[in-house]
Amino acid sequence: MCVIEPSPVVETRRLALRSPGAQDISRLAALANDPDVARMTLRMPHPFGLADAEAFVLGVAVQDPARARTFLIEHEDHGPVGVIGLFEDTDPAPEVGYWIARPFWGRGFATEALQGAMTWASRAWKRRALMAGHFTDNPASGRVLEKAGFLYTGEVRRGFSRARAAETATRRMVWLA
C-alpha cells in the first residue's frame, strides 16, 4: 500500500518543489499575469490577478493527493519561478503540466523541475507512466519534455485554452518509467 505524504518537498540541484501557500499568492499573481505564459496553458486565465492566485492556492490545498499533486517551483536564489502539477484525467496515466515565469525561461528550470516531479511520481506516487502535451506553437516545451525522456505518441488533441479563448492543438507525449 502506498502512503501519500500530505505535503512533500522534492529537492533537485537548484530547486525545491513544494505546496504553494498563502505566502505565495502575490508572487504567483505577478509571475502568472503574463500573456505569453498563460497562452501556453489550457487552464490559466489571462489576466491572472490576486483572486486567481488565491483560488489556485486554495484549489491545491483541497486536491486529493492520491489523484493530483501540484508543486510550486522554488529556486534557491530567486524564490518561486513557476508551477508543476500532476493529475489524473481521462488518460490511462496521470498528466503533467507546468509553466515557468518569463524572466526564468531558458535556464533549464522546467527540465529540472520535470525530472524531479517524475522521480517523485515514480517513487512516492508509484506511477509507471505519465502523459504530457505541448501546444503545436510551443516547440520549446516539447524540447523540455524530450530532454526529460518523454516520447511523442503521434496524437494531436484539441483543447480549449482559457487565455487564448480558443481551441488549440496539443501534441501528446508519454513517459514510461
Rank of each mutant, 00 (worst) to 15 (best):
L176W: 10
V83L: 00
A117N: 10
F160M: 08
R13G: 13
F48L: 08
D89G: 14
P8R: 12
L50A: 11
R127W: 12
S122F: 09
R162P: 02
V57P: 07
F135W: 06
L50S: 10
M40F: 06
S7L: 13
T119P: 02
R158N: 08
N138P: 10
D91Q: 02
F135G: 02
P45Y: 07
T136E: 11
G133H: 12
P103R: 05
F87G: 13
D91I: 00
Q115C: 04
A32L: 07
V156D: 01
V144Y: 05
A61G: 14
M40A: 13
R18T: 11
A124T: 09
R67V: 08
P80N: 02
E74Y: 03
G159W: 05
R27F: 11
I84M: 02
F160Q: 08
R18L: 13
F150S: 05
S141Y: 01
F87Y: 05
D137V: 02
A30R: 10
G82C: 02
E167S: 07
S122T: 14
A132K: 00
H75I: 07
A30L: 12
V57D: 10
W120E: 10
S19I: 05
P20T: 12
D36G: 03
L15E: 11
F87Q: 07
G21T: 12
F56E: 05
A68W: 01
T90L: 07
A51L: 14
Q63I: 01
R14S: 11
R172H: 07
